[in-house]
Each structure stands twice: as C-alpha cells, then as structure tokens.
Design a protein around this nucleic acid. Structure first.
Lengths: 240, 240
DNA sequence: AGTGGCGCCTAACAAATGTTGCTGCGCTTG
DNA sequence: CAAGCGCAGCAACATTTGTTAGGCGCCACT
C-alpha cells in the first residue's frame, strides 16, 4: 500500500527533515494526496471540524487569532516542510485560522490514516508529538519577542528567525531569502502598527543591516541582524 | 502494581479533570511519588536533561524565557492540576526555566514509566498529547494578548484568564481568587514595566472592576473585567 | 484609457509606555 | 533593635508607539 503522492526524498529537508530516514520512510506513505491552494485565501477557520492535517511543501502559510473587534494577530508562520495543523489530529479542530500567504503546495494526511498507523508505530507517534511540541517552543519564542523586545529588536528578531527557518527549509541563500510579506503582514506578526513597521524597516535599512523589498529580504550584515534582534543562532537548532 | 502516591480522585478537577474517569484511573498509578518544593525556587533550567515530568497539585508555578541581558518573560503559568513540563517527556529537555511561585506540591511521573504505559495504551497517549497541545493553545492566546492588547486590556485579560483557570482548578470563588503574584511578577507576564502595571491596577481599582492586594484578586465586576480584557469566557472551555 | 484599491513612504501630532527617583511600609536577618 | 531589602505607590519627565492624513506608484479591473 505505497502511495505516489509523496516520496520519502521529498521529506529530506526542513522541520520533518530532522526525523530519521526510517521515520520519514514510514511517514511518507501516510500522505493521501498533494494539493495546491491559492495565496491570500483562508484555508481553515477556528472551531471547524478537521479530519486531515497538512504538511506545507512550498509557499508560506500564516496562522491567526482574531477577536470580535477585527484585531488580528499572527500567532505562527509556516515555512516549507512544516506541518501546518498537525495539532488538529489529536484535538479535532483548531483555535485559530489558517491562511495561505502565497500559493502553497500541501501534502495531505488523513487523520484516520495517521491514527491507524500510529497505533502500531510508537516511535513515529512520539516523533510527530515532538513536532507539535516544537511548534509550541516557537510560540514561546514569539511570546518572548512580543513581550520583551522593542520594535526594532522585535522586527530584527522576526527576520532573523525567518532567515534561520528558511535556511533549514532549504530555501534560504547567503544574501537573504524570499519573504512575500507586506508591511501590514509584518505588523500582524510583530504586534505593531503598519506605520511603525515602516519606520523600523527604514531604520534597519539605514543601519545597513537588511532590507525588505519586493517580497525579498536582503541581509547586508547577518551578525548585526541577529544581535539587534537578540536572536540566538542556536535557538532553533536546539529544539529541532 | 498500584501506587499510593496519587489516587485517581485527586485528578477529578482542573485540566486533567477533563480526561475521562477511565483515563484518570490509568494515569494515576504512573505517578511514582509526590514532592513539595519551596516557593521562589528555580525548579528546572533550560536545556537540562529531564527524566520525569510533574503535575502541579497545589500552588503556582511559572515558566520563563530569559535572554543574556537578563530580560525575563513569563511564557506560561501553571495552576493546580496542570502538567508543568509534560512536553519534556517527548522532547527530553525544555527550552525555558521553571520556577515555583509559591510552595508547591507535585506529582512526579518518571518518563520511563510513562513510556512503558503509553506503548500499550494508545488512548491515554493521545490524551496526554492533547494536554500538551492545550498548553500550546494557551501560548497562542498569550501571543494575541501581548501582540494586540494595550496595557489595560492586557492586564484585564490575564486576570480574567486566571479567574477562569482557577475556577476550573476548583480554587476560585465567586468574589475572586488567590493570586500570590507581585506587581513585578505581573509585569513579567504581561510584557510591561512594573510601574505601568501599578498604573493599570489603579485604573482597574478606580473603575471598580477588580483589585489585586495581598496576593488576592477581588473581582467587583466580572462582566466588565472580561469585557475590558476582551476575554471570551468560552475560550478555555472550547479547548479543554 | 480611466479608476479604484492597496501598498509604501513620510510627516505631524497624540497617546501610551518606560525610566528615574523618591516615599513609606513590612518583613527578614543580623 | 537596627539595617537592609523588596514591594506598593506615586510623580515628573523621556521615549516609544499609534493615529491621522496625504502623496506616489503599481496593478487589476472595467
């Protein structure tokens, strides 16, 4: 009962690339199909019943908490080879919305298939559990960023985190990485007004640290970026 | 192979109280012992290797992310019947520190014992997985609070969340609840300066919403507290 | 070709938040 | 008992951040 939807070698990078080759080989056939969704489209809503989880293969997706006043806060961003909503497998639904930020290619894992496999594969189960916990560790990192860092450090920290994660995902380069986010997007992620995001980006530009233009982050001084953002290079490596 | 350290009826409230009676009966004997730790003591440090997880029976514990500059952000707070560091079971270590905020009584679950039991109990495994994911949902809620709410709403939101969780834990009352946190503690949790916390508490007091004094939150107008904090009463119930 | 929307950018002003420094009080500790 | 320390409270001032408003350019419509 092999499946052509996803080959084990597709899982050799990014977050899932941290799993052992054996585990990746057991995970791949649990994918029922791949799917493409358009950018800037709501993918799933809070409280909606879900019977499948998806792994992001290409593109960017964002997760949002919204309140009645229409305020919206991005609570997570997924880069290629991240599971987007694996936590809906044990939970059954999500407490937030998921949106495709760009056109995205997804690998679909039906919960039924997962459950059947994990019942007989304790090792794989614990590995997937661990992946959802890394998600939690990144949440804590965001909590720290939003709670303790001023705007300049906060933006720098976010851009540094994305740099790290993009490189792990295999889509980063020495000089920077593609980040198709607008300034309003950044303001959703970093908890500040779009106008202030603009101010800070100018500051980063004038300090010759990095620029964000045309959906691309160009890093002029990576070391300074990481220091400005108080970002520990090893942070993501420790938990991955 | 029963164990007197923890009786199933001890688990009938709080977060773990949401598990079915059958699951609680299977969970209780996995506790090896109970332990008491003193307040304001570091309980475990980041990156430390852990071979047991603990469930908080009494008291309060806080989880902190610290950076080299000494800034410290509380990223989670545990109320009775919360698992404090269950995520260290799949992960092996934590990315943050844990501190007892008050004298605390703990139920200890050795990882070895857990692993042996969960290998043969898929249902219990998924239930514990789910508990760690609820932790993540609360993280997202904090991200929203820190990113989107101004100081007044932020403090109100935090106090409302604690009200909810204390009641679920069975230690809340109609008129308020014990919260042995200082104003500096609150500033760690809410991402603002202690002086500003003081200002906001005065505002809440003068608006006759609630007071925090002597380690006790007195709620004069719960409805107004929840509305000021933009807190959905049902939030925690949905995810629990 | 015109038009509308949206993102980027800036400036001026308003409001929120941080910092510093001081007081007083209660607790612990010597 | 005195000294020291940490917390609550407050005020004055500095800094950061939000808000409002407007201009420009690009792109997708019609």
């Amino acid at each position: 009962m092999t499946n052509d939807a996803l080959r084990p070698e597709d899982l050799a990078r990014g977050m899932v690339g941290r799993l052992s080759p054996e585990l990746r080989a057991r995970l791949a056939p649990l994918c029922s199909e791949t799917r493409v969704v358009e950018g800037r489209r709501l993918f799933s809503t809070a409280q909606e019943r879900l019977d499948e989880s998806v792994l992001l293969l290409d593109g960017l997706m964002g997760r949002y908490v919204r309140d009645k006043q229409g305020r919206q806060q991005m609570v997570a961003i997924q880069v290629p080879l991240d599971f987007v909503d694996l936590h809906s497998f044990p939970l059954g639904s999500l407490d937030h919305e998921v949106e495709a930020l760009t056109t995205a290619r997804l690998a679909v894992f039906p919960h039924e298939t997962l459950r059947a496999a994990l019942r007989d594969d304790y090792e794989l189960m614990e590995a997937l559990w661990r992946l959802t916990l890394i998600d939690g560790a990144i949440h804590r990192h965001w909590t720290f960023r939003l709670g303790r860092l001023r705007a300049l450090a906060g933006i720098a920290n976010f851009l540094a985190e994305m740099d790290c994660r993009m490189r792990i995902a295999g889509v980063g380069e020495e000089g920077g990485y593609a980040l198709p986010l607008t300034q309003p997007d950044l303001s959703d992620a970093c908890g500040m007004s779009p106008v202030h995001v603009n101010r800070i980006l100018r500051e980063l530009r004038e300090a010759e640290i990095c620029t964000l233009a045309g959906g691309h982050v160009q890093i002029m001084n990576r070391d300074k970026l990481y220091r400005t953002g108080d970002f520990r290079q090893d942070f993501l490596y420790d938990i991955l």
